[in-house]
């Protein structure tokens, strides 16, 4: 039987389609036909935030989920999921997972909530989310007083301390809220996906590349099923995933750039790209919030320390 992996992508997401067409066929190729994967869309079997338990119970064989969904289960997930304003490129964060302490920490957090029944195979982000806005937010200063939909705790705290008012409306209301001006901006998805769902029709001032968010994805498997695989197949799966994510990062970025350039030219949409000093200002504010957030649990502290150490190592942080 193919492994049933539930993802947090929407069925029609560019990334979902790309992975399905280009990368899923490579799994049997790389494992001598011993392993096949079916990737199912968000919530197709269980709600996204329940996937770790679902994997543990064997409802699904594994998940491919944005870690943000688990923020409420353990604050350390929120730190790992999206160290808002932290990294500049997905590649940096992917590297943190693959060759630094990322996987180790993420596995430790998963173990603490699922009794070791979930095996983390790999983790990493693939895109920078854009921030669709209905009025121009050109600088850090412009954030003041803006109503921004940001459901996650860390994002809310950072927007609030930058002077914005976080609004916590549910996702199904986001579209209407942007259209009618209930909120000024809302966290959404990669630029290419926002183009597809027509978000820019109602929010024509997208901030891209976004100022805040680079969500981490995890790739896990039920521990028992994982242990039943040969070491060779285990390695192949991990290699496959990182290769897929590196390629996806590249392709989504190209798609995003292409669409953003086309939109800029079209004249109806103004793509806003923050200057470096504005980004730095936000990172300052954000950093204080990361530290506050890390107080929430020991694991969160550990997760943040590992991230900070890595950021210093690669020169993202000075002190």
């Amino acid at each position: 039987d193919p492994l049933s992996i539930q993802s947090s992508f929407n069925a029609g997401d560019f990334s979902m389609q790309y992975l399905t067409e280009t990368w899923l066929p490579k799994v049997p190729e790389m494992t001598g036909g011993r392993i096949e994967i079916t990737l199912t869309p968000n919530a197709s079997v269980v709600p996204a935030k329940e996937t770790p338990d679902a994997v543990a119970a064997g409802v699904i064989d594994g998940d491919f989920t944005s870690v943000n969904y688990f923020s409420g289960i353990e604050p350390a997930f929120a730190i790992m999921a999206d160290l808002i304003s932290g990294y500049d490129t997905p590649a940096q964060m992917l590297e943190f997972c693959k060759n630094d302490r990322g996987e180790e920490i993420q596995q430790k957090i998963l173990d603490s909530v699922t009794d070791g029944e979930v095996k983390l195979i790999a983790c990493g982000p693939y895109s920078r989310e854009s921030l669709p806005a209905r009025i121009p937010i050109r600088t850090f200063e412009d954030l003041k007083g803006k109503k921004i939909r940001a459901p996650e705790g860390l994002a809310s705290a950072i927007f609030a301390s930058a002077g914005a008012s976080p609004v916590s409306i549910p996702f199904s209301e986001v579209y209407g809220a942007l259209e009618k001006g209930i909120v000024d901006a809302a966290d959404a998805s990669a630029y290419v996906n926002n183009v597809a769902t027509g978000l820019h029709d109602v929010a024509p001032y997208p901030l891209y590349p976004g100022i805040h968010s680079m969500p981490l994805m995890q790739f896990t498997m039920n521990r028992e099923r994982w242990d039943a695989l040969s070491a060779e197949d285990q390695k192949a799966l991990r290699d496959w995933w990182y290769a897929a994510m590196e390629d996806l990062t590249k392709v989504v970025n190209e798609q995003d750039q292409e669409k953003a350039a086309a939109d800029s030219k079209g004249g109806k949409i103004e793509v806003i790209n923050w200057a470096l000093e504005d980004r730095d200002q936000l990172r300052e504010v954000a950093r204080a919030e990361w530290l506050k957030f890390a107080e929430k649990s020991e694991l969160a502290r550990e997760a943040l320390d590992a991230n900070l150490a890595y950021m210093k190592k690669i020169g993202l942080l000075k002190d």
């Binding site: 409420g72 289960i73 809310s156």
Partner: peptide
């Protein structure tokens, strides 16, 4: 089982309010 699990280890909403709602 899920109810016992959250009693042993509370799950929060992970939002700005971070309530015990779940």
């Amino acid at each position: 089982a899920p109810a016992m699990k959250v009693i042993a280890r509370p799950e929060y909403s992970g939002t700005a309010m971070n309530s015990l709602q779940p």
